[in-house]
């Protein structure tokens, strides 16, 4: 077995196992952590397929942003999961009908899948990595950039404008300038003179400051 095959089986089994744990584990924080493991395993699979840019994107976007956001939401919101699970039996009939439908669909999918014939086994079709990746050609990101900044420049720029509008909207609708916030102003602090802050008073003994 080649190194790539070993890596494939390691990543694939890790992905399936952690995906299963996402659903099974009782603690939602653990679920999110397993979700992150699943993402990373899938990213490994992408690398094996020669889609290194997609793999990095998955790690940066899904692990770095989405999953961490999930984690924050799960930890910040005080959701009582025991309470959520109440009425489980009550909804069981509906759930079992849905589950049956999904299972039947899965059976259909498996039914139309056939084992490779002897001819196909003798001449296996090349994998994605073998067909796409040309070691001398442009890398994934170069190829993407070449298209994105030429053929699709119009859409790319509009997408940028849409994101800008979304940002303006988020700021307009949520940002409030609050009164009474004490901000540190280093320049003002440094510019302050001794005379501004200190007052010398002669106090006669026994009289005090009135």
């Amino acid at each position: 077995m080649s190194l790539a095959a070993i890596a494939f089986f390691v990543f694939a089994s890790a992905a399936i196992a952690s995906a299963l744990m996402v659903v099974v584990s009782k603690n939602p924080v653990h679920s999110v952590l397993f979700l992150i493991t699943a993402f990373i395993s899938v990213a490994g699979l992408f690398v094996l397929m020669g889609a290194e840019y997609l793999a990095m994107l998955l790690v940066v976007v899904y692990v770095g942003a989405v999953a961490v956001l999930f984690l924050f939401v799960v930890m910040m919101l005080d959701v009582d999961f025991v309470e959520l699970k109440q009425g489980f039996l009550q909804y069981m009939p509906v759930a079992s009908v849905l589950a049956t439908i999904v299972v039947v669909e899965l059976i259909f999918v498996v039914a139309v899948w056939s084992l490779p014939s002897n001819v196909e086994l003798a001449h296996p079709s090349p994998t994605a990595a073998e067909t796409v990746t040309d070691p001398n050609g442009p890398t994934n990101i170069e190829a993407l950039g070449l298209i994105l900044y030429t053929d699709y420049i119009h859409y790319f720029q509009i997408a940028g404008i849409i994101l800008l509008i979304a940002m303006i909207g988020a700021i307009i609708l949520t940002f409030r300038t609050r009164d009474g916030v004490r901000k540190q102003d280093p320049a003002a602090q440094v510019a302050r003179k001794r005379e501004d802050g200190v007052e010398l008073v002669d106090i006669k003994s026994g009289q005090g400051l009135s």
Binding site: I158, I161, I162, I165, A166, I172
Partner: peptide, 8 residues
Amino acid sequence: TQSLALYI
């Protein structure tokens, strides 16, 4: 582009 600005 149009709709997003209009929602806001």
